[in-house]
Lab assay of single mutants.
Amino acid sequence: DHWEIRVGDITIHLKDVDEEIIRWVEEALRNGDDLEEIKRWVEEVLR
Results as ranks from 00 to 15, higher is better:
Ile38Phe: 11
Glu43Phe: 01
Trp41Asn: 06
Arg6Asn: 09
Leu46Ser: 04
Arg47Phe: 00
Glu37Arg: 11
Ile10His: 11
Ala28Gln: 10
Gly32Thr: 10
Ile38Thr: 02
Trp41Ser: 08
Ile21Trp: 08
Asp9Ile: 07
Asn31Gln: 12
Arg30His: 08
Val17Arg: 08
Arg30Thr: 08
Ile22Thr: 07
Val25Glu: 00
Val17Trp: 11
Ile5Pro: 02
Glu36Ile: 09
Glu26Thr: 13
Ile22Tyr: 08
Asp9Trp: 00
Arg30Glu: 06
Lys15Trp: 10
Leu46Arg: 04
Asp16Asn: 14
His13Ala: 10
Asp33Phe: 14
Arg30Trp: 05
Lys15Met: 12
Arg6Met: 11
Asp16Leu: 14
Glu19Ile: 13
Glu37Ser: 15
Glu27Arg: 03
Val7Met: 09
Trp3Arg: 09
Gly32Cys: 09
Val17Lys: 12
Glu26Asp: 05
Leu14Trp: 08
His13Trp: 03
Glu27Asp: 12
Leu46Trp: 01
Ala28Pro: 00
Glu19Met: 15
Asp1Val: 02
Arg6Gln: 07
Arg6Leu: 06
Asp1Met: 06
Arg23Pro: 01
Arg40His: 07
Arg47Gln: 07
Ile12Ser: 02
Trp24Asp: 01
Ile22Ser: 04
Arg30Ile: 09
Ile5Ser: 02
Leu29Arg: 01
Ala28Thr: 07
Asp18Thr: 15
Lys39Asp: 05
Gly8Trp: 00
Val17Pro: 11
Leu35Gln: 06
Asp18Phe: 15
Glu20Asn: 14
Arg47Gly: 14
Leu46Met: 12
Asp18Ala: 15
Arg6Phe: 03
Trp3Phe: 12
Lys39Trp: 10
Glu19Pro: 15
Glu43Trp: 03
Trp3Leu: 12
Val17Asp: 05
Val45Gly: 06
Trp24Gln: 11
Asp34Gly: 11
Val7Glu: 03
Glu4Val: 10
Leu14Glu: 02
Glu20Val: 14
His13Gly: 07
Asp1Leu: 12
Ala28Lys: 14
Leu29Gly: 00
Glu44Thr: 03
Val7Ala: 05
Asp18Cys: 08
Asp18Gln: 13
Glu37Trp: 13
Gly32Val: 12
Glu26Lys: 03
Arg47Thr: 11
Thr11Pro: 03
Arg23Leu: 06
Gly32Met: 12
Glu44Gly: 05
Glu4Gln: 05
Glu36Gln: 11
Ile22Phe: 13
Glu19Ala: 12
Trp3Met: 12
Trp41Glu: 04
Asp18Ile: 15
Ile21Asn: 01
Ile10Tyr: 11
Asp33Ala: 15
Ile10Met: 09
Asp33Lys: 15
Ile21Lys: 06
His2Glu: 07
Ala28Met: 13
Asp16Gln: 12
Ile38Pro: 00
Arg30Leu: 09
Thr11His: 10
Glu43Tyr: 02
Val42Ala: 06
Leu35Pro: 13
Glu19Val: 14
Val42Ile: 14
Glu44Tyr: 01
Val7His: 09
Glu27Thr: 08
Ile21Cys: 09
Ile38Trp: 03
Lys15Glu: 10
Asp16Thr: 13
Trp24Ser: 08
Leu46Cys: 04
Glu4Arg: 01
Ala28Asn: 04
His2Arg: 09
Ile5Cys: 05
Ile38Glu: 00
Val17Cys: 04
Leu46Lys: 04
Asp16Pro: 14
Val17Met: 14
Glu36Trp: 04
Trp41Gly: 05
Ile22Pro: 02
Glu37Leu: 12
Arg30Tyr: 07
Glu27Cys: 02
Leu46Asn: 03
Lys39Phe: 14
Arg47Asn: 09
Lys15Val: 11
Ile12Lys: 03
Leu35Cys: 00
Asp9Cys: 02
His2Trp: 15
Glu4Lys: 01
Asp1Tyr: 01
Arg40Ser: 08
Leu46Val: 08
Glu27Trp: 01
Ile5His: 02
Trp24Arg: 06
His2Cys: 08
Thr11Cys: 04
Arg40Ala: 09
Val17Ala: 10
Leu29Ser: 01
Ile10Phe: 13
Gly32Asp: 04
Glu37Cys: 06
Arg23Phe: 06
Lys39Leu: 11
Arg30Ala: 12
His2Phe: 08
Val45Leu: 11
Arg6Ser: 05
Glu20Tyr: 14
Ile5Gln: 02
Ala28Asp: 00
His2Val: 04
Arg40Thr: 04
Leu35Asp: 04
Asp33Arg: 15
Gly32Ile: 12
Glu44Ile: 08
Val17Gln: 06
Val25Ser: 00
Val25Phe: 07
Ile12Arg: 01
Trp41Asp: 01
Ala28Val: 11
Trp3Asp: 06
Trp41Thr: 10
Leu35Tyr: 14
Glu26Arg: 02
Leu29Glu: 01
Asp33Gln: 15
Trp3Lys: 06
Gly32Lys: 10
Gly32Asn: 08
Ile22Glu: 02
Glu43Ala: 01
Asp18Tyr: 15
Leu29Thr: 03
Ile38Gly: 00
Val45Pro: 00
Glu43Lys: 02
Arg40Val: 02
Ile22Gln: 07
Glu37His: 15
Ile22Cys: 03
His13Phe: 09
Trp24Val: 06
Arg23Trp: 07
Gly32Pro: 09
Leu14Val: 11
Arg40Cys: 00
Trp24His: 13
Leu35Met: 08
Lys39Ser: 04
Val45Arg: 10
Trp3Gly: 07
Trp3Tyr: 09
Lys15Asp: 12
Glu36Ser: 09
Trp24Gly: 05
Val42Leu: 15
Asp18Met: 15
Lys39Pro: 02
Val7Tyr: 07
Gly8Gln: 05
Val45Asn: 10
Leu14Tyr: 05
Gly8Arg: 05
Arg40Pro: 00
Val7Phe: 12
Asp1Thr: 04
Asp1Ile: 03
Trp41Val: 11
Glu20Gln: 15
Ile22Trp: 07
Trp3Pro: 04
Ile21Leu: 14
Gly8Met: 03
Val7Thr: 02
Lys39Ile: 12
Val7Asp: 03
Arg23Ala: 12
Trp24Ala: 10
Ile5Thr: 03
Glu27Asn: 10
Glu26Asn: 05
Asp9Tyr: 01
Asp16Gly: 14
Arg47Lys: 10
Glu37Phe: 14
Thr11Met: 06
Glu20Met: 11
Gly8Thr: 04
Val42His: 01
Leu14Ser: 05
Ile5Gly: 03
Val25Met: 06
Arg23His: 06
His13Met: 13
Glu19Trp: 11
Trp3Asn: 07
Glu27Pro: 00
Glu37Gly: 11
Trp3Ile: 12
Arg40Asn: 07
Leu46Ala: 07
Ile5Arg: 03
Glu26Ile: 06
His2Ala: 07
Val17Phe: 10
Trp3Val: 12
Thr11Gly: 04
Glu44Leu: 02
Arg40Gln: 07
Val45Thr: 08
Val45Ser: 07
Asp1Pro: 12
Trp3Thr: 10
Glu19Phe: 09
Arg6His: 13
Glu4His: 07
Trp41Pro: 00
Val7Gln: 04
Glu26Val: 08
